[in-house]
């Protein structure tokens, strides 16, 4: 077996196991960390496809930023697994068909007819820098979809800020400009008085 093939199987095996542990792990923090491991191996698979920019972007964006904040939130949650379990049978009638539908869709997408090697031949590896090839493609051929995607992200960003922006009356906010501008006479008053005796 070629070295790359062996590497592919190792990375995929860890990826599948980690993804399985994400949904089976009892501790939510462990689940998030397994998800990080899954991302890492997915990035390794992309490196095997010589898509180094996408692989590193996956790590910078998801592992380095998104999952950190996710972990941060999960650590603060007090999750009671018993309570979560209670809803299992009640929601099964809705969850079950949706799961089946998703499996059917995945099979349709991944089956050889529509997305197999014949229908979608592997693109030729970019000569020279992969990053440059990607940049050129994004900013020439796909500039409108790219701009549209960024506008959608911007809208989501502003919406998230707007939804969470509540003015609290009781916060003791500090104004650094006023703090810096403070003079001694604003805080201390020196009075001259005769010394006193008991």
């Amino acid at each position: 077996m070629e070295f790359k093939t062996a590497l592919f199987y190792i990375l995929s095996a860890i990826l599948v196991l980690a993804a399985l542990r994400v949904v089976t792990a009892r501790n939510p923090v462990h689940a998030v960390l397994f998800l990080v491991l899954a991302f890492f191996n997915a990035s390794g698979l992309w490196l095997l496809l010589q898509a180094e920019f996408l692989a590193i972007a996956l790590i910078v964006v998801y592992v380095g930023a998104v999952m950190v904040l996710f972990l941060f939130v999960v650590m603060m949650l007090d999750i009671n697994l018993e309570r979560l379990r209670q809803g299992f049978w009640n929601n099964l009638w809705l969850g079950g068909p949706i799961a089946l539908l998703m499996v059917a869709e995945m099979i349709a997408v991944l089956s050889a007819r529509s997305f197999g090697p014949e229908a979608m031949p592997a693109p030729a590896a970019a000569a020279g820098s992969n990053t440059k090839a990607l940049g050129v493609a994004i900013y020439t051929d796909y500039v409108y979809p790219f701009e549209l995607a960024s506008v959608i992200l911007l809208v989501a960003l502003i919406a998230a800020v707007a939804l969470n922006l509540r003015k609290r009356k009781d916060t003791k906010q500090l104004d650094p400009a006023r703090q810096i501008a403070v003079k001694r006479k604003d805080r201390v008053r020196i009075v001259s008085m005769p010394s006193e005796k008991e």
């Binding site: 590193i56 972007a57 592992v63 380095g64 992969n130 990053t131």
Partner: peptide, 9 residues
């Protein structure tokens, strides 16, 4: 090629 990006990651 993507050394700078790798260090960031």
């Amino acid at each position: 090629d993507a050394g700078l990006f790798y260090v960031l990651a």
